[in-house]
């Protein structure tokens, strides 16, 4: 089972990964978490759906995303 890890402190909450990038649509900007830089980081809504395609990692400018398989 693939897994996505968001590095919350590195994420700047730009939302590039959340839009239409994720083919299974499991990434959103967290409405209630806030990191020490004041950004709402990306969170995974349903890890079971992740297919490990890496698109989120690919478009992340930081990179604040790691993908495991």
């Amino acid at each position: 089972m693939p897994e996505v890890k968001i590095l919350e402190e590195v994420c700047k909450g730009c939302g590039l990964c959340c839009d239409d990038v994720c083919p299974v649509d499991i990434l959103i900007l967290s409405p209630d978490t806030i990191n020490s830089s004041g950004y709402h980081p990306t969170v995974v809504t349903d890890m079971k759906k992740c297919i490990g395609c890496g698109y989120c990692y690919m478009i992340c400018p930081e990179p604040a995303i790691e993908v495991y398989k």
Partner: peptide, 12 residues
């Protein structure tokens, strides 16, 4: 950690 604005293409 890079000092670019959120969503900036430089990081990519």
């Amino acid at each position: 950690i890079q000092r670019y604005c959120p969503g900036c293409g430089h990081g990519i």
